[in-house]
Design a protein around this nucleic acid. Sequence first.
DNA 1: GACATTTGACCAGA
DNA 2: TCTGGTCAAATGTC
Length: 315
Amino acid sequence: MDSSWPENLPIDRKKVTQKIVQGQEFAKQLQILLSKPQIQDGLASFEDLVAKILRSFTETLSILNCGDSDEVSQIPAKRSPCWDGQKSEDSGESSKSSTLKDRRGCYKRRKTSQSWTRVTPNLIDDGHAWRKYGQKVILNAKHPRNYFRCTHKHDQGCLATKQVQKTEEDPPMYRITYNGYHTCQNLLKAPQIILDSTHRDSSVLLSFDANIPEKQDYTFFTSSFPLIKQEYKEDIPSDDMTHHQNQSSSSDYLLSPDLTTFDSSGPMTGLSSTLGSDHGDVISGMNSCTASTHSLDMDIMVGSVEFDDVLEFEF
DNA sequence: GACATTTGACCAGA
DNA sequence: TCTGGTCAAATGTC
């Protein structure tokens, strides 16, 4: 991770600064809002603020990632010459040409993309739709590593990927490494707030370090908070899960059925809403993320006391 | 048929 | 040369 700002990067510095400042302002407003005793009255504006803050940071990160937030739907830039972008747009020609097989493994590994890691005891819904594209046995690791990419990689050029690996600890933890940021328009769940479907009494903690003398945690979520909603059925056997959550026609985040590879006995999270609508509403776990973008650090903590995981961003 | 996962092959980087 | 990351054909599910 290099903290310097390469001069030749095609990044609009003004834009980035502007977005960061914007997020900072929203955070301040949020702080003021949260200090009011009648916080419930301002729930709507509060939600709006949260959405603005998250959007601001997301756009900033997109700029950092792509050079320009307006180009988020462009063809992935970090590709090898043999990458043809979206095969469905292959100039009308059939993509089943003989050269297809020759492209297998033909790619450019993203060496410097932003990444951050979190360790969590539960597999959680991070609000995005992921599609598993690989699984690899890792040397000296008991469990295989699973590779996921954003479902919108091809239709929106979203480059976000993540790796999920079960650790050998006792109890087992899941190390989730995110690479790149979502540039897709996942409007329903744009705010990357993590859900955990193991708690009914949920709370969300937000804390912003920027210009706040002391780190403050705000507990403002209730189970009725409408920003994120997830439904699940807790007592479905994992084998059944394989059958139920296979289809991801819904926009909800789906964990791969293959997550049973890790440990089917673990809590089931990240379930599709297709599992049924009468099994309870959102439940939140805890997520904290720490983003360092020059002068601004942002901590977002979502959840309750079950676990504490930290996101470490690398630029 | 559309979209998902599985899995062996291939390539880049250490 | 080895290992990890990605591709894409094969296959499964709805």
